[in-house]
Design a protein around this nucleic acid. Structure first.
Length: 262
DNA sequence: ATGACAACTCGAAGTTGA
């Protein structure tokens, strides 16, 4: 069972790359972020022709998340609970009935939060509090759960090529990192860090200033696993080569393999 | 210090991103 997360930075602009990656990787569940599309305009046909079910939670122009899956989900929830006034499309969660019981997977796009002296940073921190509350409740099910997405948080210095460059940035603020740790401390496992302590495991390279060519990357796309999912963790991979494709996203896919049985 | 890139937008130049 392969579960992937990928911020595609626009599904219209990335459709060729998305289809090529689906053909190459054949993930069972793919969590997409920044589809930048309303639900009606999502190019579902080309994806369904490849055998995937498509569940979207989009909005006009920016944000937007989606779940692609070989099996049809038995339930889908859109939006992160905790603030009725929040209209950003940043969270979608599905449940799949597997031979060994239910599997729950969320695709999330955590707010960027820059600049830090604006309401955008407060919105980021408030969104993280809502995510913590939601994760706490979800963990009480004691079932396999994967919270996958673009967290817009650099957890540690080893997760950036030049960490000092990010000291004033919302992605590396002490408050952002502390909230991420409190989320982890609910009992979640960072899948990538469960498999390696190596630095250089980046998932994002800015389009600007030759960041890719200089390997000036950061690790901000994460798959967090409940204990019941962590028990099944087989391997983690970063599809770094996708960053060198024509018209790439600035993020690359991260993929975990979970065993079918505990 | 600024802008660099890129995608999107009822369609130019502004917004958003990280």
């Amino acid at each position: 069972m392969l579960i992937a997360t990928w911020n595609i930075n626009g599904v219209k602009a990335r459709l060729d790359a998305l289809l090529a990656w689906l053909d190459e990787r054949s993930p069972d569940i793919a969590c997409l972020q920044e589809i930048k599309s309303v639900d009606e305009n999502f190019p579902r046909q080309a994806i369904e022709e490849r055998g995937y079910h498509v569940e979207t939670h989009g909005q006009k122009g920016f944000n937007g998340v989606a779940l692609l899956s070989k099996m049809a989900p038995t339930a889908v929830d859109r939006g992160l609970p905790g603030d009725e006034t929040d209209e950003h499309a940043r969270y979608i969660e599905g449940v799949w009935e597997t031979d060994s019981g239910p599997l729950r997977v969320a695709s999330l796009y955590l707010p960027n939060g820059n600049p830090i002296d604006t309401p955008k940073f407060a919105y980021k921190l408030a969104w993280m509090e809502r995510l913590i509350a939601h994760a706490r409740a979800a963990l009480e099910r004691e079932e396999p759960l994967v919270l996958a997405g673009d967290y817009n948080v650099i957890p540690q210095r080893a997760d950036a090529a030049f960490p000092d460059n990010w000291l004033g940035d919302a992605l590396f603020q002490p408050e952002s990192r502390a909230a991420f740790r409190r989320l982890m401390n609910l009992g979640l496992t960072d899948a990538l860090r469960a498999s390696t302590d190596a630095d250089g495991t980046y998932t994002f390279w800015d389009y600007q200033a030759g960041a890719w060519q200089k390997n000036n990357g950061i690790r901000i796309d994460h798959l967090l696993l409940s204990p019941e999912a962590q028990e099944r963790l087989v391997s983690v991979g970063i599809d770094k080569h996708v960053r060198a494709w024509e018209k790439p996203s600035d993020h690359v896919p991260v993929v975990v393999e979970l065993a079918d049985q505990p």
